[in-house]
Design a binder for these strands. Structure first.
Lengths: 193, 193
DNA sequence: GAATTTTAAGCACGACCGTGCTACTTTTAT
DNA sequence: ATAAAAGTAGCACGGTCGTGCTTAAAATTC
């Protein structure tokens, strides 16, 4: 019982790493088995279907995101410092080899029905909510104006992150990070004055 | 000779529409043939390979983008008005059924080598350059400060567009458009004051 | 209208897909 | 140590993939 869970996690680690390159749909059980040094049926037995495997990848990826982005940010003091911390770690997150699986999943399933789509939307909403919640601490601490729309802040911060991702890893534009921080600082200023 | 080109274009129209949902990798010749009411080999004969078909889709999509986004913007007077116009049409572009093929391609090929990746990067760069070039007209017209970094503006505008796309079509957040325009206006203000 | 080129379908190929079943080996519990 | 359970591989299935070749129909040119 314990051994099984162990290899299951090992498989998932490989699967997530592969899916960052090929996407969740591009992931195949055959190539995954080869990469994990197992037989196809050996891998398959751990997930009752391909869709279950894909969903498990999404969950595993979300756990990693929490570990690498959310938790480090929550360790910082509430307010702007925490907001800056999450942006910082988020930018590092984007530089994972193969790219961000959240973004890949969003592009893959954005207009297709199904369980994968639904889970993806929930995860995206959770990520946005994390940003909004942290922005709210800046309001509570008196750093942001009382009437700040924290969802607006979340949307704009997310935009900064997304365009950073594009400029950095697709266009390989050297000024991507500087540009992102400049935009971020102006955003903060406009809400603190 | 003429009839062939005609059906080729018809096939491409269907292909692009399908690829908006499934992505360029998810597009298969079998399903494309079915959707175009042709045999697999009939479709295949118009493109010597799957990769060629995918590249042709990218080109066709780019043409449409120029027609629906770039050209309408260029019809507006140089400067902020033109910048606002391109954002407006760009936002409409994103609401195509299935989503934006540029974004899908970027997510699919961002870290994979090959001709599709290379073409995708060029197209993304062209889009960014269009934004920067229009921002430059705002500088030339004296609306933006002399020392404005037009690539910085392009990056930020692109971020606004990307996050709008996410909020609107994935999260279905009703305030997405308002949020995007609020961010846009603040961006303009900070460069004009 | 005849000759020729272009377009499309039929068909077959090897490969790989997701999925199950069966049998054997390894791990766990007694 | 033995019995039970869990994990893994082998193998086979129907299906679809991209790709080519061959042949009939259609469109174009003379």
């Amino acid at each position: 019982m314990r051994k099984g869970e162990l290899t299951r996690q090992a498989i998932l680690d490989v699967a997530v790493r592969m899916a960052r390159y090929s996407g969740l749909s591009g992931l195949t059980i055959g190539s995954l088995a080869a990469a994990a040094d197992m037989s196809k049926s050996g891998v398959y037995a751990h997930f009752k279907s391909k869709e279950a495997l894909q969903l498990a990848c999404m969950e595993r990826n979300a756990e990693q995101f929490i570990d690498e982005v959310i938790r480090p940010a929550l360790a910082k003091p509430r307010g702007v410092a925490r907001l800056q911390a999450i942006v910082e770690h988020w930018m590092s997150w984007y530089s994972h080899p193969g790219g961000c699986l959240f973004l890949a999943a969003a592009a893959e399933f954005d207009d297709l029905p199904g369980a994968l789509h639904d889970r993806m939307v929930v995860q995206q909403r959770d990520m946005l909510d994390s940003l909004a919640r942290i922005a709210a601490t800046a309001v509570a601490e008196g750093e942001f104006h009382e009437d700040t729309d924290v969802f607006q802040v979340a949307q704009e911060v997310f935009g900064i992150l997304l365009s950073y991702n594009w400029m950095e890893r697709i266009l390989r534009y050297p000024g991507a990070a500087d540009g992102a921080w400049a935009a971020f600082n102006r955003l903060i200023d406009s809400h603190t004055d």
